[in-house]
C-alpha cells in the first residue's frame, strides 16, 4: 500500500511537471526557442495567488483566475519586449536573453516581495480520501492535481487539432514562411503560444504551492528545470510527450526518494534522462526534425 501511495503522489508531482512542460514544449515547437524564464512565471503566478488570497481575502477561484491572468500578461509582455526583437538572431543570443529575463524576474520579485520564504495558504482543499480501511490515504489535492492535468491535456489537444488558431499554430510550428503565405500572422500566433504556456504555469503554480507550501523568489527554478527535463524526456515539441515525460519524471523522482535516497533522487532522475537521450536523442515521443527552419 505504501508503494501505491508513493506512486500516486508521484503521478501528482508528475502532473505539475507535465503542465509546466507544456509551456516549454509549445514555445519550443512554435517559436523554436528555450524560454528559460518559464519557471519564473510559475513564481509570479504563486505570488499573485498568495497575495490575492492572504492579503485581499479573495475567494480561491478568483485568486486562481487572477493568477492566470497576470501570468499570461507577463508572459506575453516578456515575449514582445525581450524575444520578438530577436526573431532573426542566433538561438544562443535568444537563450542568453531568456536567462537574463529569468534573473530579472527573480530579482524583481525579491525587490517587491522580499527574499523571505512565505507560507502558501491551503486555498484549494484540505483533507483526504481514505480507502481500504484507512490503509490508503490520498489527499484531495493529489486528486485535483491529477484531474486538472488530464483536463488540460485533453483540452489543449482538442484546441491544437480542432480550432482554426490551433491549426495555425501547428502550421507555424512546421513552416513559418508557408504559414505567412496562408495569411497567418506569425507574431500573433507566437503571442498566443506564450499566453497559453504562461496561463498554464499559473495553474501549475497554485497546484505546486498547495503541495509544497513555501513561496520564495527562486521557487520556479527547480520545478522549471525538472519540467524542461520532462519536456526533453518526452520529446520536445510534443504535447503527449510533455505528459509522458512529466509523469515519468514525477514517479521516478518520488520512488527514488522513497526507496533509494532523498539526496540522490535528482541525480538519479537526470541519469535516467541522459540514458534515454543517448538511446533516443529525440526523446520518447519526439519526431525526427523533418522540417528544418
Amino acid at each position: 500500500m505504501t508503494f501505491l501511495t508513493y506512486l500516486i503522489s508521484g503521478l501528482a508531482l508528475g502532473s505539475v511537471y507535465a503542465i509546466i512542460a507544456l509551456g516549454y514544449t509549445m514555445v519550443y515547437g512554435i517559436a523554436k526557442m528555450l524560454n528559460f524564464a518559464h519557471g519564473d512565471i510559475i513564481m509570479a503566478g504563486g505570488y499573485v495567488a498568495f497575495y490575492a488570497f492572504s492579503k485581499f481575502g479573495l475567494p480561491s477561484y478568483l485568486c486562481i483566475i487572477l493568477s492566470i491572468a497576470v501570468s499570461t500578461i507577463i508572459g506575453v509582455i516578456i515575449e514582445r519586449l525581450a524575444y520578438k526583437p530577436l526573431r532573426q538572431a542566433s538561438s544562443l543570443s535568444v537563450l542568453i536573453t531568456a536567462i537574463g529575463v529569468s534573473y530579472f524576474l527573480q530579482n524583481a520579485a525579491q525587490l517587491m516581495f522580499g527574499s523571505d520564504t512565505k507560507i502558501f495558504p491551503a486555498m484549494l482543499t484540505e483533507g483526504s480520501l481514505k480507502m481500504f480501511n484507512g490503509q490508503l490515504t490520498i489527499s484531495y489535492l493529489t486528486i485535483i492535481t491529477i484531474v486538472t492535468c488530464i483536463i488540460i491535456m485533453v483540452g489543449l489537444t482538442a484546441f491544437i487539432n480542432k480550432t482554426k488558431i490551433g491549426k495555425a499554430m501547428r502550421a507555424c510550428a512546421e513552416d513559418k514562411g508557408a504559414a505567412q503565405l496562408m495569411g497567418i500572422n506569425v507574431d500573433t500566433t507566437i503571442s498566443v503560444t506564450f499566453a497559453i504556456g504562461s496561463g498554464l504555469a499559473a495553474i501549475a503554480a497554485v497546484l505546486l504551492c498547495s503541495t509544497y507550501p513555501s513561496l520564495s523568489p527562486t521557487l520556479g527554478s527547480m520545478p522549471g528545470i525538472k519540467a524542461f527535463t520532462a519536456a526533453v524526456f518526452g520529446g520536445i515539441g510534443s504535447i503527449p510527450g510533455a505528459l509522458l515525460g512529466g509523469m515519468l519524471l514525477g514517479v521516478i523522482e518520488n520512488l527514488t526518494k522513497a526507496y533509494i535516497s532523498t539526496q540522490l533522487s535528482d541525480a538519479i532522475v537526470f541519469t535516467v534522462l541522459i540514458i534515454v537521450l543517448l538511446i533516443k536523442p529525440t526523446g520518447l515521443l519526439g519526431k525526427k526534425e523533418n522540417v528544418k527552419v
Binding site: R170, A171, E174, G177, A178, L181, M182, I184, V291
Partner: peptide
C-alpha cells in the same frame, strides 16, 4: 511547402 502533419483538407482550409 505543404503542411506535412495536417490533412489535405486542413491544408486547403489554411489557405
Amino acid at each position: 511547402r505543404i503542411f506535412a502533419s495536417q490533412s489535405v483538407e486542413d491544408n486547403l482550409l489554411l489557405g
